[in-house]
């Protein structure tokens, strides 16, 4: 089935609008990361490169997606909803008392494999899953999404060594490298320097791409699935808060606590402008 690029672009715009709407309704939420990772998630769930079953989320044939950076939940919730895992109604309750949609990603939500929020753990969990599949001779894939700030954690590098030791070739780590973290730019807080070289030295197959260019993302995902021995990292260079020009690349929009109606309208109108020029 050929992938329709304008469908992906439109879906991304819809997802970004969902993110803004959920934050506006809740009054607060994480913004920059969900917006920077949107195109990556849409590429996964709206192409034929990732195998999932919206009406049977635990189907044993499914590929597994582990969101390690749990604060990107808003993007994943919207994508899962639009992929058919649950009704839109659920989105409107984001982060309210007794809502399934917890502020950080929650495994009781249909389609979510793993709850996270405390950074640095998901790549190890994904490695454990990929190892179980390898032992069971299952051919499915485990895909993790990590953030660049998350790579401050030593555990990520423990997982990198582990995945190499066990030749987890069906493990793919997509790094949303948006250049910011909660307290500043990643280069200010803890420079990652040449992340690609680091992963290369750790024995991984490395791709570094523009994380907003759909043809490149899709092509790279299909290359990644061809790995025979090495685990694969896709370092996706992205723009924090992508789609809302006045917020883009500014670490102060990592999360937002007073997303009032005025700011919401301004952000949405900038997104709509983007929509017109797609």
């Amino acid at each position: 089935m050929p992938i329709n690029l304008s469908h992906l672009k439109n879906t991304s715009l819809d997802v970004r609008a969902d993110i803004l709407t959920m934050i506006n309704k809740a009054g607060s939420g994480h913004l920059a990361g969900p917006l920077s990772s949107t195109d990556l998630l849409v590429s996964l769930y709206f192409s034929n490169l990732f195998n999932f079953y919206p009406t049977d989320p635990k189907n044993p044939q499914r590929d597994r997606f582990v969101l390690s950076a749990g604060h990107l939940a808003l993007a994943l919730y919207s994508v899962l909803c639009r992929a058919g895992f649950f009704d839109e109604e659920l989105l409107s309750g984001f982060s309210q008392l007794k809502s399934l949609l917890q502020g950080h990603v929650y495994h009781h939500v249909p389609g979510v494999e793993y709850s996270s929020g405390s950074l640095g753990q998901g790549l190890s969990v994904a490695a454990g899953m990929a190892l179980a599949d390898k032992k069971d001779r299952k051919k499915r894939f485990t895909i993790a999404l990590t953030s660049d700030g998350e790579h401050n954690q030593g555990q990520v590098w423990e997982a990198a060594m582990f995945a190499n030791k066990y030749s987890l070739s069906r493990l793919i780590n997509i790094v949303d490298k948006n250049g910011i973290q909660i307290g500043g730019t990643t280069s200010q807080i803890m420079p990652l320097d040449d992340l690609a070289s680091k992963y290369h030295e750790f024995g991984w197959q490395v791709y570094e791409i523009n994380g907003h260019h759909f043809p490149t993302i899709l092509r790279t995902l299909s290359y990644a699935k061809e790995s025979k021995e090495k685990p694969v990292v896709i370092i996706a260079n992205t723009v924090a808060a992508k789609g809302i020009p006045y917020m883009e690349a500014n670490y102060k929009y990592h999360d937002i606590k007073d997303f009032d109606q005025e700011k919401f309208k301004k952000a949405l109108s900038q997104l709509n402008k983007l929509s017109k020029f797609k």
Partner: peptide, 25 residues
């Protein structure tokens, strides 16, 4: 085949164990 050695990495080990357990082990 069922003995997984993580080396001296308690955090990775606990999360790898979780990944295996979430796969039915």
């Amino acid at each position: 085949s069922r003995f997984i050695e993580t080396g001296v990495s308690e955090q990775n080990a606990a999360a790898v164990a979780a990944g295996l357990a979430l796969s039915g082990k």
